[in-house]
Design a protein around this nucleic acid. Sequence first.
DNA 1: CAGTATCCCGAACGATACTG
DNA 2: CAGTATCGTTCGGGATACTG
Lengths: 135, 135
Amino acid sequence: MQNDLETAATFVQRWSEAAAGGNTARCTVRNILDKIGDKWSMLLVMTLATGAKRFNELHRQVPDISQKMLTQTLRDLQRDGLVARQVFDTQPPAVEYRLTGLGQSLIVPLGFLINWADEHFSRIDAARIAYDTRD
Amino acid sequence: MQNDLETAATFVQRWSEAAAGGNTARCTVRNILDKIGDKWSMLLVMTLATGAKRFNELHRQVPDISQKMLTQTLRDLQRDGLVARQVFDTQPPAVEYRLTGLGQSLIVPLGFLINWADEHFSRIDAARIAYDTRD
DNA sequence: CAGTATCCCGAACGATACTG
DNA sequence: CAGTATCGTTCGGGATACTG
């Protein structure tokens, strides 16, 4: 825990230095954060974390994504080098998606974040209710 | 490192169990991830991580945010219990924003994520260039 | 099976002007 | 100083239909 706090403190310092010196670092981070906040990207990364999957297999496991967004999100992840696409020359065609090493490395920090969300969601929810019912 | 991988593995397992049993956990997480991906929320959290700040002070440190979005994002963070707003009854009025304990706890996992982004951005950038220039 | 193509809506966001 | 109010536009993304 002490370790976490030190890490956080170091990070905050680096952030503010970067912010002071111009905002290149901030832009870099925004770029990644956009991806995290993207409605489907991280959900697909997490789904692929359990192993390679085919197109319709992914579609079944994430039922509320539209075909369009599944295609588009996979393309983006592929473009970023987080996901690899492998085509098998069979009839009918089979296509498999899997995380690259880079994609797998994202699982670690993403996991921390999602665990945080999981642990603190009830407090956030309570805060929202308190805020909305204040007079 | 081994520790991180174990954490990630545990997480992935919990995720898939949750996904299998319905998607309540996923919805919870989406809710938080929406906030992370929000264009300004995390930038403000990081900016407030260095200490309490007043409205126009924040506006100066994050110059490219519009007044409207600064207000709105601060309200949302306040509603979620991540930021506290304190009004000083002076003339002219002064208002100070600071992270709550809950808000501070977010710095830790958020820091991991941003450090990841920072460390891997060049690889992502290279992947994008490779993808865009493939023939 | 694994996609493309097209249409369309609503929310997010920026710009601008005004206020206690 | 610390906001509110309003207008206008962009664009993410859903629905639907079609294809190699």
